[in-house]
């Protein structure tokens, strides 16, 4: 039996009186890449936000390494769970300054400057994410793909056990999509980093995840959890997305690959 780093048990949450996800139970196993997929509004991001306590849960519990997530102090949690958001604020600071902010959870009380270790770590992850050459440029002046890479570097500097990503590749061209997902894959392989991410693109999710969680917008439950082959079937996609598709196989990886099968394709 593999160890679960994160365990979500019968979680319901939403905004105000509107419940978005209901009775969601889910385990993230140590060392895997798990992707959350589902239509717009099915609660993918909400689920992610409930893990970091930004959206308060109405029912159910979330256990991180066996502890209730609400009981873990914020800065301790920030040392274990790092989040890469959907869009990164184009702040007026250099890429390096931005990445160094990831060390904040490790600052001792009344510590004022970064330590040598912080700088070296930032350097290491800048090299790894290929943001080294950008380090003196302003965050507001680099492209959105580069900002996303910087954001991943910032998350890695937090030295987390679990990395959460919210649509890391949306709005990016295929070069950056491949670069970022390749990087995540490498981090998972080389550093053993556990990754939970929200992915919109079903094909990318299929290629780059060990397991998928498909959320159902209609009732807020999980429709199915499993390997890409188990989750991405023609019936499942038709049920959830109301769109006829044909599922093929990626000739290289053998993973499921989705083709639209609507009538009015040119």
């Amino acid at each position: 039996m593999t160890k679960a780093i994160l365990e979500i048990d019968k979680l319901s949450c939403g905004y105000g009186t509107k419940t978005i996800i209901r009775d969601v139970s889910l385990k993230v196993v140590d060392g895997e890449i798990l992707s959350i997929i589902g239509p717009n509004g099915s609660g993918k991001t909400t689920l992610l936000k409930s893990i970091t306590n930004i959206v308060k849960s109405e029912k159910g519990k979330i256990l991180f390494q066996g502890r209730m997530i609400q009981s873990i102090p914020r800065n301790e949690l920030a040392r274990k769970v790092a989040v890469v958001g959907q869009a990164v604020e184009p702040a007026m600071m250099t890429v390096q300054e931005y990445i160094l902010l990831g060390r904040l959870p490790y600052f001792r009380k009344y510590q004022f400057m970064e330590t040598r270790k912080d700088i070296l770590l930032a350097q290491r992850y800048m090299t790894l994410t290929d943001t080294d050459k950008l380090k003196d440029q302003l965050m507001s002046e680099v492209s959105s793909g580069e900002r996303q890479l910087a954001s991943i570097a910032r998350a890695l500097v937090q030295e987390p056990a679990l990395l959460l990503l919210d649509e890391p590749t949306s709005h990016l061209d295929i070069t950056h999509q491949a670069q970022i997902l390749g990087l995540i894959h490498r981090l998972n392989q080389e550093l053993g980093l556990t990754v939970l991410m929200v992915v919109h693109d079903l094909n990318l999710a299929s290629e780059y995840s060990h397991r998928l969680v498909l959320l159902n917008k209609k009732d807020g439950h999980i429709y199915r959890t499993g390997t890409p082959e188990e989750v991405l079937t023609e019936n499942a996609v038709r049920d959830i997305y109301d769109t006829p598709v044909i599922i093929g196989k990626n000739p290289l990886s053998g993973k499921p690959c989705i083709f639209l099968a609507t009538q009015n394709i040119i």
């Binding site: 306590n53 040392r79 989040v83 902010l101 990831g102 959870p105 937090q158």
Partner: peptide, 11 residues
């Protein structure tokens, strides 16, 4: 400066 959510994520 990164936004409130990001700041929360940084502890």
């Amino acid at each position: 400066a990164l936004g409130e959510e990001e700041a929360i994520h940084l502890g």
